[in-house]
Structures are given as C-alpha cells and as structure tokens.
Design a protein around this nucleic acid. Structure first.
Lengths: 112, 112
DNA sequence: CCTTGGTTACTTGCAATGCAAGGAACTGAT
DNA sequence: ATCAGTTCCTTGCATTGCAAGTAACCAAGG
C-alpha cells in the first residue's frame, strides 16, 4: 500500500456508493470517475473486491449487458440498502471531519 | 472493529501527532483530548501501539517522569521528524477532503 | 483454424492499522 | 501481604487497500 493511504480506508467505498447513487455504471466507468475526482491511483484491484463485498451485502441492483469486446459487463446501481449505507457513510464522514477540525483548531467539543 | 470505523485509519495517528505538536503529554492526557475533540471511543489499545510505532520512527522526544501513583509516566512531544509527518498528513487530509467533496458534488476535477 | 491482443471480470495474498483483551510493573492504603 | 488504582505494554483478530496474477469472452489476421 502507498506509504500514506490508510487514509483511504472506508472512504473509497463511500465514494463508489455515491457514484452509483443515480446511474448504472460498470467497472471502467467507476474507475474513471474516481480518478477524475482526485483518486488518481484508484484501481481495479481495489474496485472488484469492493463490488463483490457490497453486492453480497445487498447494496446493489445489478444488470449484465453483453459487450461487443469481451465478457458481459456488470452494471451496478444502489439498492435501498445501498442508499442507507451511503447515508451512514456521509454522516460518519461529517462527524470525522468535524473531529479533525476540532483537533487542528485546538477547540474541544465535548462528545460528538 | 466497530462496523464503521475503517474511516479512522490513518486519521487517528494524524490527530495524535497534532496534539503533541506543542506540549509534552502522556497517555491519559492524549486519550482525554482525543475524546473531547469527538473521538469518543478512542482507547489505549489504539494509542499504545501507535506511540511505540511513532517513537520507533523517531517522531518523538520522550521524557519519563516519576508518578506518585504508579510506574513512571512517559511524556511525548514531536521531534522534527514528527513535525514533518504531521505536515504530510495534513496535506494528504486536505487532498482527500477535496476529492470527497468532488465526488459528493458531482464535480470532476481532473487530477489532484 | 488458432493465435494474438484487447476487454471485462475475478482471485490470491500481503501490509497497515484499529481495537479488544489481557498482562505486568509500580504505588499507597488497608 | 493484600488490594486497588495507575501506567505501560503485548497479542491477536478484523477490515480494507492494492499489486499481481488468472480466466473468460470477442474480433481480426496469419
């Protein structure tokens, strides 16, 4: 793993969920959008295990469509469970951001 | 681990570094400040391995002082290497925040 | 054919960190 | 001596990121 990026833990999943909130996307599209948003090293080695995990947890509606160039593409979109997971992520992300802001501004907050 | 908190990965370390930027603190003080800033479940089981790791990497100036109640307390403060690690963390944190903001606002950024 | 190359999907295995749980050393008080 | 409180450390598991490798499917060329 890059020397840094324990920081990505959990975050990548949250972002992929967000990307699949509205549209059906397949792997290459997800990778490209993640990269364009700033996750420039985001790779399929990260994506596929994540998709399988989330699919197993019922987070997706999945549609297979034949491809002219290879095996059928798997398109993903959030299910209701997926949306809930996204909502949970977003709340936790906001709490985390606030806590870090507290630490870095030397304010104390008392519980959060 | 809590079902959520892969999100904390890397973040807790960055925050502890920040707390030790100015003052000498020992374990219980670090735990309390982290909790007050919003990391309400922050525990010694997390802290001690982290301190040892960072100490081994030369991130600290360490001072032992006798305690009236038990074994000598270990006080920690950032070394120059520690400060550099903190700076690196802060930059990475900002980049990460920006990327997430991009994903959640559906803006694309092109590289970052 | 059948090989090559591109596309899409998946698997395996390792590294890093959080954290629960338990243990060890030291103190003063009962 | 024992006990409780304090302070420190160790062990082991779970999760996730990611590199690397595998496999299935297709089209086009030799």
């Amino acid at each position: 793993m890059g020397t840094d990026a324990q920081l990505n833990k959990g975050v990548l999943e949250g972002c992929v969920l967000k990307l699949l909130e509205g549209d059906f996307l397949f792997s290459a599209e997800i990778v490209e959008r993640m990269r364009r948003c700033g996750f420039s090293d985001f790779s399929e080695g990260t994506l596929y295990p994540m998709l399988l995990r989330l699919e197993k947890d019922g987070c997706f509606i999945v549609a297979r469509k034949p491809s002219p160039n290879g095996p059928p593409k798997k398109y993903y979109k959030l299910s209701e469970a997926g949306r809930q997971k996204l909502d949970t992520f977003f709340v936790q992300w906001q709490e985390l951001s606030q806590s870090i802001a507290n630490v870095f501004s030397r304010k104390e907050d008392d519980h959060a």
